[in-house]
Design a binder for these strands. Sequence first.
DNA 1: CCTGGAAGTTGAACGTGTTCGACACGGCGG
DNA 2: CCGCCGTGTCGAACACGTTCAACTTCCAGG
Lengths: 255, 255
Amino acid sequence: MTDRSVPPPADAGGAAEQTGVGGAAGAESATAAGAEPVTARGEQTRKLILDTAMRLFRERGYAQTTMRAVAKEAGVAVGNAYYYFGSKEHLIQEFYAETSVEHRSRATRVLATETDFAERLRGVLHAGIDTMTPSHEFAATFFKTAAEPTSPLSPFSSESSPTREASIALFREALTGSTAKVDPELRDELPELLWLAYMGVILYWVYDRSTDQTKTRALINGVVPLIDRLVGLSRLRVLRPVTRDVLGLIRTLRQ
Amino acid sequence: MTDRSVPPPADAGGAAEQTGVGGAAGAESATAAGAEPVTARGEQTRKLILDTAMRLFRERGYAQTTMRAVAKEAGVAVGNAYYYFGSKEHLIQEFYAETSVEHRSRATRVLATETDFAERLRGVLHAGIDTMTPSHEFAATFFKTAAEPTSPLSPFSSESSPTREASIALFREALTGSTAKVDPELRDELPELLWLAYMGVILYWVYDRSTDQTKTRALINGVVPLIDRLVGLSRLRVLRPVTRDVLGLIRTLRQ
DNA sequence: CCTGGAAGTTGAACGTGTTCGACACGGCGG
DNA sequence: CCGCCGTGTCGAACACGTTCAACTTCCAGG
């Protein structure tokens, strides 16, 4: 079957020439699925598609943006988008990466000046929300795709591992750069726990319908002192066994 | 009664008549979206479609089950399914309800015999997982659809409010029927918090890839004593302010 | 120059969820 | 007996994500 009606489209590429190689050495990228561009032209097409998609996602929302629209707006064929990105969802992975990078950049100021643990943590958390705020509308929509465990987009998946590690590292810095005295046993595990808490905050944020997500801010401001206090208390006599149990449990459950 | 081939079926309903009102006064049901059946024939068709869908979901998984397949297997037209259920996702809401009912039924034994809070809580949690276990495979898949905040399927949505309330009530019973001494301020809020913890357990369970979800069991067994201890400790001098803060925060954040 | 093949590009076709206008049924008032 | 109308039912049609075989571009090696 298939049948092809009109044989040769005569002209193919739209925006052409541009043979010079040039920059864009995207560090570790490796988004998997979909071909990694080799040529400079490929690099450019990829970026064109990605930028267009991002723009449309923000303008119309994820669900309302069709792949056809992305392709049309970018001036390429639908199939071309699939050459670079394995699926519509994979376009989101890029969003993760971008967000992660900006999160770090936004967090550096606090991490460079503050020494109080609670303040550092607070800063990192708010920086994360700051970063995502412009995309709240569509983040909420695309969140569902990330929730599927088998999806490569799950924050726990190996495919988002680089981004996740970068995020955890941020919390590690928040801890190590602070003056906080932490149970040494807890010290290694805490950054990951903080990241987990961050995921919880994001979860709340996604559901947060209050104007400007004020409640999420309240959540952060309220929860940070609690964490700070609990971390401090973790060295207390009465709580030692609890700390022990928590750590034991976490080690068992880590998948 | 399967295929339909011939245009005018002459006869439509299978087991017909039954004009009397009578049974099936399904309390608050109200699944919204899609028409509520009025006729006995409608009632039957609805059930037929639902049962078929459930069976196929379990057999092939959610994503692999097409609406066409459901319709065909049920011996109706696709459009007919959409007459009763607003969307493919809405078929899931029913799963919620069924699960909730069975959860309660499974939990009654423990709640009737045990008096120790930790044991009661443990029992309720395990009962929940027991109930869902047969559907683990497809639950994981459909979970994503529930994650979207705007979706009526979200556990926080008003549309699943009845089911949620039923679930919270279960935890309230676990608490009130126990011998545990709880900070009175905490007593009112705790059931909802326990339900939230239960949601967390489910979240973990969905992601749990260990055989027979052993790790989820470990999580429950590990986390219950912690909760038990923390609840007990909440009346302690040093932790009083923490308890206060937690409660204050929760009251602020409740949406 | 030519040519082979890898990289990039195309658009029709497929399968899916969902919609919608048309139709069937059955009881009720005329 | 007839026509009406609300409840059900039908299936073609639509929009979308995704696939794929055919095609173009471009350059290294002869």
